[in-house]
Simulated assay, not measured.
Amino acid sequence: MRRLGAVAVAVALLVTGCTAPEEEALDVVVSGEPGERPTITYRTPLSVDETVSTVIWPGSGPELVEGRPALVDFWLEDATDATVVKESYSTNPTARILSAEDLGEDLYETLRGQRVGARLLQVSPAPGNGAADFPTVTVLDVLPTRAAGEAVPPREGLPTVTLADDGSPSITPSATEPPADLLTQQLLRGTGRQVAEGDVITVQYTGFSWTTGAPFESTWTSGSPVWFSLDSVPAWSALVEQPVGSQVMLVVPPSYPLGVTQSEELQGQTVVFVIDLLASRAATTPEGSAPDATAPAGGTDPTTEG
């Protein structure tokens, strides 16, 4: 995904200050770097009769697919006084299904047809359905749901990884003996933030048996990324210093606890994880939010759009 410089876009919306004698066009200014929380400037309080959305900058990655997961960061403010209601930049991105049923009609229309890398602005009236009693200003960043980076030739003796069109991996087992120690091998080298100890990571992954190559657990079944703390899976601490955007093979000998529920057939076996690193954030616990301690299958914190 290409990098963009600082962006400040004044968006003329049909919104009005509640104290204004008549309707007038006001500006909502969104600034900030890609991958960082936005800064939003506008006159408060705002009132708007219907939802308005616009593209702050377009994405250059894959187009979002109807009925499939979309991964977004969001910043949602109460437009009456510009207070932050909810946001994901200090915790972890949110995975949602691209459908009106899952997102609601307004957010669905905002995201529909967009590409990975886009930054979007949505201004909505109070929904009047009990979800909120105030209008909202929301900025959304569309994030990738699969790794993308420079291919790295794997070392000899490791399983061969093949990717399907949607990015889901399969492996051809190696005929060699499995390594006795924990082993990491980059398959794609990303360019994002490096994973730090104790981070909460957002990933797609599949776990395989070294011996048979058969998968035993995968997020690709639904295609929805998950998130969890590295501290909850000791073997995955080997991902520290790997850059976000990478795809990494992690070979785990049976001496390491995995943090997953294994079948009897996997007990005492070496397993192979193919992991797409989509985001990594320092573990923080803002008010009303907490990292999920269950791993690898984590959870998401849905946006509230009404």
Rank of each mutant, 00 (worst) to 15 (best):
A6M: 11
V7Y: 04
A8W: 08
V9W: 08
V11P: 01
V11Q: 13
A20Y: 10
A20L: 05
E23G: 13
L26I: 11
V28T: 02
V30R: 01
S31Q: 09
I40K: 05
T41S: 14
Y42A: 11
Y42C: 05
R43S: 14
T44W: 06
V48I: 15
V52E: 14
S53T: 13
S53Y: 15
I56N: 01
P58A: 12
G61H: 04
P62M: 09
P62G: 08
E63Y: 03
L64F: 11
E66Q: 13
L71K: 01
D73E: 15
F74G: 00
W75A: 01
W75G: 00
T80P: 00
A82M: 05
K86V: 00
S88M: 06
T91L: 12
P93S: 06
T94D: 14
A95K: 05
R96H: 09
G104I: 07
L107S: 02
T110H: 00
A118V: 06
R119N: 07
L121W: 03
L121M: 08
P127F: 10
G128P: 00
G128M: 07
G130H: 10
A131Y: 08
A131P: 00
A132N: 07
A132Y: 07
A132W: 05
F134S: 08
T138A: 14
V139Q: 02
L140E: 08
V142A: 09
R146Y: 02
R146F: 03
A147Q: 02
A148D: 11
E150F: 06
P154D: 07
T162H: 12
T172M: 07
T172N: 07
T176H: 06
E177F: 08
P179L: 03
A180R: 14
D181E: 15
L182M: 07
T184L: 10
T184N: 01
Q186K: 09
R189P: 00
T191N: 11
R193T: 15
R193E: 14
Q194D: 13
G198F: 07
T202D: 11
Q204E: 15
T206L: 10
S209D: 15
S209I: 05
S209P: 09
T212N: 05
A214W: 05
S218I: 02
S218L: 05
T219C: 00
W220K: 06
G223S: 07
P225E: 10
P225N: 06
W227I: 00
W227Q: 15
S229Q: 12
D231S: 14
S232A: 15
P234D: 12
S237A: 11
V240E: 10
V240R: 08
P243V: 07
V244T: 14
G245N: 04
Q247R: 15
Q247W: 03
V248G: 01
P253E: 09
S255D: 15
S255W: 10
Y256A: 05
L258D: 06
G259F: 07
T261L: 13
S263L: 13
E264N: 14
E264V: 07
E265P: 00
Q269F: 04
T270N: 03
V274Y: 02
V274D: 00
I275D: 02
L277V: 09
A279N: 12
R281W: 01
A283M: 11
P291H: 03
P291M: 01
T294G: 07
T294Q: 13
A295W: 00
A295T: 09
P296M: 06
G299N: 14
T303P: 11
T303D: 04
